[in-house]
């Protein structure tokens, strides 16, 4: 498991509006890559192009290449559905399926992708996924209760368990802690450190301390001015980025001079 993503000169549009322009980068396997930048700079849009969720929005489209271990996700023979099966996603707000139990939430992706699975095998995968998301001990006695009954942080970890249950190659996280309190945030950050042994993790965050704490590499997104498409200003090792950035704009952003 865990694969490398190579993006070359990617543009993303909403209708006629160009949201990001000419983004190229390499995202290494078994590491955490963080995207930072001011609101509206296109970092979430870019994240959603990596598993073809961008095109779910009517009128949205992408130009350029995204290679997963050398294979183009946007090749005409590739269906978005199979891309998303390989590249899981966790959203800004926890979104467990309200009509399903905790168990069913975790099992949902597997049921889609593999059809009928023996009960014992499914039980094992659900347990492993919940353990992987550091949630097992909290919910093992109420697996048949609705997922909506959990706290926000638990719901978010449930969503992570749901995403890793299908054994994806990559895990995309779109500001996964922005709706959570500090303790739940810490639990998710711990989880990321653990998950990066197995997965390629990409996280969008508004919180620079978070980026500094959890990520190995950081990309800084910015737009030249309002209405212009977002671009990658700089991408580097997180430690270097936060101590000695090459670009002036990065330094200004990190030191809090704007954004």
């Amino acid at each position: 498991m865990s694969k490398q993503i190579q993006v070359s000169s990617l543009d993303a549009y909403y209708g006629s509006h160009k949201a990001i322009e000419d983004v190229s980068m390499t995202i290494e396997p078994r590491s955490v890559t963080a995207f930072i930048g001011p609101s509206g700079c296109g970092k979430s849009t870019f994240l959603r192009t990596l598993n073809r969720m961008h095109e779910v929005i009517p009128g949205a489209r992408v130009e350029g290449k995204v290679l997963l271990d050398g294979e183009d996700l946007y090749a005409t023979t590739i269906e978005p559905v199979s891309v998303r099966r390989m590249i899981g996603m966790v959203f800004q707000r926890p979104n467990p399926f309200p009509t399903m139990s905790i168990y069913e939430n975790v099992a949902a992706g597997l049921r889609l992708n593999r059809g009928r699975i023996p009960k014992s095998e499914m039980d094992g995968i659900v347990e492993d996924s919940l353990k992987g998301a550091n949630l097992w001990n909290e919910v093992k006695d109420r697996l048949n209760k609705p997922g909506a009954g959990l706290s926000g942080g638990q719901q978010q970890r449930l969503c992570i368990a749901r995403a890793i249950a299908v054994r994806p190659e990559v895990l995309l996280m779109d500001e996964p802690c922005s709706a959570l309190d500090p303790i739940s945030t810490l639990a998710i950050e711990d989880l990321m450190a653990k998950l990066k042994d197995q997965y390629t993790i990409v996280i969008v965050t508004h919180n620079m301390q978070q980026a500094a704490r959890v990520s190995d590499r950081t990309a800084f997104f910015n737009l030249a001015e309002q209405g212009k498409p977002g671009k990658v200003v700089e991408m580097d090792e997180t430690s270097r980025m936060f101590t000695n950035p090459t670009e002036k704009a990065t330094e200004d952003y990190i030191t809090g001079r704007f954004g």
């Binding site: 779910v56 998303r84 899981g88 959203f91 979104n95 309200p98 992706g109 889609l112 749901r162």
Partner: peptide, 21 residues
């Protein structure tokens, strides 16, 4: 809820599976 529809799609659901879930 749109966010549940997106969650289903992100798990690799087809359009019909998204609607069903």
């Amino acid at each position: 809820p749109k966010m549940n529809e997106e969650a289903a799609l992100a798990l690799g659901a087809t359009r019909w599976e998204m609607i069903r879930i």
